[in-house]
Design a protein around this nucleic acid. Structure first.
Lengths: 346, 346
DNA sequence: GCGCACTTTGCAAACGCTTGCAAACTGATC
DNA sequence: GATCAGTTTGCAAGCGTTTGCAAAGTGCGC
């Protein structure tokens, strides 16, 4: 409504007057355009410093230049998983001269595509997407606009997008194999949200490891944990009520593993004495819960950082070929796993 | 450099043509200006829907309107403390039609005031500041520009700013008193970063409780923990090497308490058997570390939420009187505290 | 059927920048 | 010292809005 009574800002024109050049020259200096003679460039720089000139990103964006802002589209900020990636993004961004615009969709699909429209109007120069909900529709739009974007941990829905992912299948395979080598035979799996590729890949890894070691796959041992703590709790409840209880549980992420640990304890069982548990992600809590959680480390911070770096490349050079970066996972052994009680087998 | 070859967007002018009115009428409809006849308003709405019009925030901002964006200025995103506040901000924002611009200063002072300049150019409509570093300079600027802002957990440096804080002194008093009532006599304090008011107030609360219970204040029992985990670890190391070891430690925040717990264990001591420990904040890890940490809960999410709501009020009505909201802390008793070993006293 | 006080509408200027285009400059070459 | 190919510079148009101001429209009482 009421327009703010802002004090008049120092503009490119003021600088031009001070430096005794035209305003386009000032603009060129600001944008590092090479077609400016060195002495004038210097004069403009001095004038800018003297007047305390700060570019107006709105005007730049509107006029078709770079707003020096990138966007991050994410479902929500609740999870430590997202928080860690955000950390990496932020760190990387600090080394470039870019700011960050945060878009949380709060799980409402309509919002995502609405944002995309706003965004491509020049508000931001590039977009990072973490685990987008229903990207079919608008990724196509982004591509058509030649708008720079990078997807983090996506769902394999298309192969044209630059992406940063981690070795979900292999990580899950290694986790499962670790439990098998400890002597476990009944290993349960707490799965993630069904429609994400990381959930699917981790389930695949789990099954592959069972198969490789000639263990049967029992669907009753797979329960969905929705990637969150309450989900993990409930899934574990069900698993522990099974007639033949599992001796180990592999949870598709740490949050659900931590929930499962609560459930195990509430059944009066000990970790890892009665039930071993292993997670995925290596969020901060995992090192500080009791007992410290063995897990598959996913380099979340680095994923954020690399994705950002990739995006910067695309912004600078829109023709840069699409890449798919795969980050290695790593088994982090702490104290939540042990051989099964009755086990002499190995 | 290269201007993006964006497809021409649907503008206010396209809508005007479609609805057969002037573009200012469309603008008025978009801004809910009452001076539009009902039938035209309806026609414009239809045209907007038909064409899929989305307002360009850059142009709005530039022209002096509202960009529908608020900014958040924060040192970094590393801490769970900030993450929780951010959560509250984000949740509240979702109910308004506002987006969030994130500014992390990464502890560089120069950056803060530079941002402030950009911001007041119309890029954002209001600003939230969490624990600003050196606000003396630019808070004054904001005030002069009549720019809406709210400070979260500030340092008491000025009394003109709208602020959301919590009862630090009282919370610290209660934590200390709780330890005293358990029978502890040598209670150490791991302090926060010296120049923040929350650190100062918590130290005050600690001292006040000692005094109220006729216990001496021993400067050797106060060590700075810098509000982070390594800091807490080192501070605890020093405290535990004291000739007469404390039987309880009160840490100025949970992060340093968790660091201290590591130190206690690395000294071969048990918690709470040998040393009791209590934190401040109630971040998520605290419930999942071992043993679960007794702490003073600070309603961080609510603080973010309330601050955002306050900011919305100021944006809508710049003349709204400056408020200072104080949130209550609450002692959360878990399992990290017990009476001292040798204690019959209470 | 006219004048009056409102309400509604449209035009034009501004917001601060980028950039294509043409003019002005530069220095080397003959 | 004129010519030419670069290089540097400045002008003007445009990006999509908001909003003050003036013009046009409305309804009412006489």
């Amino acid at each position: 409504m009421a327009s703010r009574n802002r004090k008049r800002n120092v503009t490119i024109i003021d600088v031009a007057r001070e430096a005794n050049v035209s305003y386009s020259t000032v603009s060129r200096v600001v944008n590092n355009n090479p077609h400016v003679r060195e002495d004038k460039r210097e004069r403009v720089r001095e004038a800018m410093a003297k007047l305390g000139y700060v570019a107006n990103p709105l005007a730049r964006g509107l006029a078709g230049g770079q707003a020096q802002v990138i966007g991050l589209l994410v479902r929500d900020l609740v999870t430590e998983y997202v928080a860690q990636i955000l950390l990496g993004i932020d760190e990387e961004l600090a080394t470039h001269q870019y700011d960050l615009m945060l878009y949380t969709t709060h799980h409402r699909r309509a919002k995502e595509s609405q944002y995309i429209q706003t965004l491509t109007q020049g508000f931001i120069d590039g977009l990072l997407l973490i685990l987008p909900l229903d990207p079919g529709a608008y990724l196509e739009t982004l591509r058509r606009h030649q708008f720079p974007y990078v997807v983090i941990d996506h769902q394999g829905f298309d192969d044209f997008s630059p992406t940063v992912v981690s070795t979900n299948t292999r990580g899950a395979y290694e986790a499962t194999e670790y439990l098998i080598k400890l002597g476990h035979r009944r290993i349960a799996f707490i799965a993630g949200s069904e429609n994400t590729s990381s959930a699917i890949e981790r389930l695949e890894g789990y099954r592959a490891a069972l198969q490789a070691h000639d263990l049967p796959f029992d669907p009753a041992l797979v329960q969905s944990g929705e990637f969150d703590q309450p989900g993990g709790f409930h899934a574990a409840q069900k698993l522990l009520s099974l007639p033949e209880r599992p001796t180990a549980i592999f949870a598709a992420n740490d949050a659900s593993a931590i929930g499962a640990m609560d459930a195990i304890r509430s059944h009066g069982l000990s970790i890892p004495g009665d039930v071993s548990i292993i997670g995925f992600d290596d969020i901060r809590q995992s090192a500080y819960c009791y007992p410290p959680l063995t897990t598959v480390r996913q380099p979340l911070i680095d994923m954020g950082r690399i994705a950002t770096r990739l995006l910067m490349t695309y912004i600078a050079n829109p023709a840069h070929p699409r890449e798919r970066v795969v980050m290695n996972t790593e088994l982090v052994i702490r104290e939540s796993c042990a051989p099964p009680r009755s086990a002499g087998q190995a």
